[in-house]
């Protein structure tokens, strides 16, 4: 049966605190919490919020690893806190906001830049002529579906941005999740927008800035494998560019 039958264990949480109206720089605050053995990091944060310190701010909602709200750095690694078992940690647990993002408050990061990158890859189906609903669904074989399905599993938790060494140095780098998303549509048999997106991918600070560190794929909680998406997107963007060059020359 479930592992929740064991003893409560006392742990120390070292949590980043920051209120821009009061603090010049982030500081830490320590909380002692008696934790159930089946708790996740998020359970401890919620306990702190409800029982110890109502002034702590963090984002969370679904607590089942699908809404993508609760990404934080735990002992220095980007994690979805709702699926990170405390049992895997020692007595001291450090919780910080996701790295490589500006901090709004405490554990809450600013995601404006991410949202712009996200939109810039045109993450929607582009077709020359839109079909009416009355014409019925497109056919798509299971093989065509599996060509992009993995890249459609991204929950936008942004752990890959917190892990990416390129984002750390160049905040404007388009980044793993956005590239994987654009690539997802490029690989969808229903889409005709690859040329437009490849244009984006060939721009400054995109696929070619990736340094193959593979950190994104290692931290992804949903096995999206953004590193594979970037590599494929890179190749496609080059092939597409070469093909357009040939067409132009011939045309």
């Amino acid at each position: 049966m479930a592992p929740e039958t064991g003893e409560m264990r006392k742990r120390t949480f070292v949590v980043t605190r920051f209120d821009p109206d009061k603090d010049q720089v982030p500081k830490t605050q320590t909380y002692e919490v008696a934790c159930r053995p089946d708790w996740k990091v998020l359970d401890a944060l919620n306990h702190i919020k409800d029982e110890i310190d109502p002034t702590l701010s963090h984002r969370w909602s679904c607590r089942m690893a699908v809404c993508g709200s609760c990404g934080m750095n735990v002992n220095g690694e980007p994690k979805l806190t709702c699926k990170t078992q405390l049992a895997d940690y020692g007595e001291v647990v450090e919780v910080e906001p996701l790295a490589n993002f500006p901090i709004v408050r405490d554990l809450v990061i600013e995601m404006d830049g991410f949202m712009e990158k996200f939109k810039s890859v045109k993450p929607w189906v582009i077709v020359a002529k839109e079909k009416a609903a009355e014409e019925g669904p497109n056919r798509q074989s299971p093989e065509e579906l599996s060509a992009f399905k993995q890249f459609s599993m991204c929950i936008n938790c942004m752990l890959c941005y917190a892990a990416c060494p390129v984002v750390a140095k160049e905040p404007h780098f388009l980044g793993p999740a956005a590239i994987a998303l654009g690539h997802r549509y490029n690989m969808d048999s229903r889409d005709e927008g690859a040329a437009e997106r490849n244009e984006v991918f060939r721009g400054e600070g995109t696929v070619f800035h990736c340094s193959y560190a593979n950190e994104c794929t290692e931290v992804c909680p949903k096995n999206v494998d953004p590193a594979a998406a970037i590599n494929q997107a890179k190749l496609n963007a080059v092939v597409d560019w070469a093909a357009s060059f040939v067409v132009k020359r011939n045309g």
Partner: peptide
Amino acid sequence: HWGCPWSRNDDG
């Protein structure tokens, strides 16, 4: 039409 990855039968 908007891209939802519905699961498919073998005939698409």
